[in-house]
Amino acid sequence: MTTVGIDMGVENIKIVVLRDEKIIGRGKARSGGAKRLAAAKAVYESALKEAGLREDQVEKVFVTGKGKFDVESMAGDIITEPVTAAKAAEFLSPGATCVFNIGADETMALTLNKDARITEMVINEKCAAGVGNFIRNMARRLELTQEEMGAVPPKAKDGPAVSDGCIVFGELDALNLMNKDVPPEEIASAVLFTAVIRASTVIKDLTEPNFEKVTLLGGLTQNKAFVTALKSWLDLEFVIPDEAEYAPALGAALLAAGWGVKPYIEPASAVS
C-alpha cells in the first residue's frame, strides 16, 4: 500500500511517501506563508519524484501539523499532532514510554502505555510557545547560521543569561547583551538555555511521566546544541530516530496505511 503523510508545520512542510512500511520518498520546504497550499503541492511533487511515483499511484494522503486545514483539499483525512507523533514513535521507537515532540511552534510531551496509546498529553502554554521560532529568530539577530547556532557551547555557569520566564523578555535581554558587545556565541548559548527551560516546563508538567524510553521528535532534534543542553538539564537519555524531523509526517502516512494499533474507538451504534 502506498500512502503519503504531510506535516504542515509552522516553519516547514515535511512529506513522507510510504510503501509497505518503507519510506520511499520525502520532501521538505519552508511553509510558504500565505501560499501554503502551493508550497505543499510543490513539496508533494518533489517527494513523489524521489519515490518514482505518480499522484494516482498514491492510495491515501493524511495531513497533520499546525497548518493542516490549509491543505484540506489534498487531505484524505486530517489527524491531530499527538496521534501522529504517538504513531511515529510506535514505529520508530517501539516500546517508547514518553515522546517529546519539539518544533518551531509547539512543544508536546506524551506518555504512552505498552499498547502505544496516549495516557497523558501536555502541550505548551502560550508562554512556552514558539521555542523553535525563537531560536531561529535569535540566530538571525546574532547573524549566525542554523548550523552555527546548533554548534555553540553550553551556557557557562556564570555566563550571560537572558530571561527564561518569557521569550519576549528573553529577546529584550539578548538585545541588551548585544549592545554591551557580548560575543554572539555567548548570547546564543544563553538563548538556547532559555529555550531548554521553556521546553522543560512542558516536559515537567507531565503528572505521571514514565522516562524509561524517551523518544525525541520534531524539528529541534536537528539543533545539536539544544539537544545536548536539554539532555544535560533534564538528566535524561533520549532516543532520537533518524527520521525524527519527519516523524509527524511519517505518523500520518502510517495511519493512512492502517499500520499498528488502532488509535480511535468506534462510536457505539445508534439505538432508539
Binding site: E125, D164, G165, F193, I197, R198, T201, K204, D205
Partner: peptide
C-alpha cells in the same frame, strides 16, 4: 533562578510567587 518547575504547580502568578 532558572525556573522550569513552578509552571507545573501554578499558572499566571506574579514572578515572586513563581
Amino acid at each position: 533562578e532558572p525556573d522550569d518547575v513552578s509552571t507545573k504547580w501554578i499558572y499566571a502568578s506574579c514572578y515572586p510567587v513563581r
